[in-house]
């Protein structure tokens, strides 16, 4: 008998550079998306910097991974959220967010969805498991 598809949420709370957590965490998301699970990703706290457009890692001497976020929809990771308070308190707006793919029908760019803390809390309450990076 087929089991119900489990909801698994990733939270990204650390800045994208300065440690490897966010980058290796992205690798986990891409792998997990290939499995039969209902994946969602929430960027909050300093994690919102991970989905800021125009990161230049050349001077850091690392490859950077901003471009990979552009393929999230292709990896069938569509449920991507950004905490509004974290974003705004860091001087960012929705226009600063990376594009994570494009709509199949309209070819419109898709950006992470900006949501309030209450919405995130409601989504968290529905999860089978939550992994933080």
């Amino acid at each position: 008998m087929a089991e119900e598809v489990k909801k698994i949420m990733f939270t990204v709370r650390k800045p994208p550079h300065g440690s490897i957590y966010v980058y290796e965490g992205l690798e986990v998301k891409l792998i997990m998306a290939a499995y039969d699970a209902d994946i969602s990703v929430v960027f909050m706290d300093d994690g919102v910097f991970a989905v800021k457009r125009g990161q230049d890692t050349k001077e850091l001497g690392i490859k950077g991974f901003e471009a990979t976020y552009g393929a999230l929809v292709d990896y069938e990771i569509q449920k991507v959220f950004v905490d509004r308070h974290s974003m705004e308190s860091r001087g960012m707006t929705e226009d600063d967010l990376v594009i994570i793919g494009e709509d199949e029908d309209t070819e419109e760019p898709i950006r992470p969805q900006v949501v309030d803390a209450q919405e995130i809390a409601a989504m968290m309450a529905e999860q089978h498991n939550i992994l933080s990076f």
Binding site: S19, E27, V28, I31, M32, N129, S132
Partner: peptide, 21 residues
């Protein structure tokens, strides 16, 4: 082993507890 093992643990376990920063 691979991250697929982590995936299976996350799916099969009732709770996943993460230790780290």
């Amino acid at each position: 082993s691979g991250l697929g093992q982590l995936t299976m643990m996350a799916i099969q376990a009732d709770r996943m507890v993460v230790f780290g920063d």
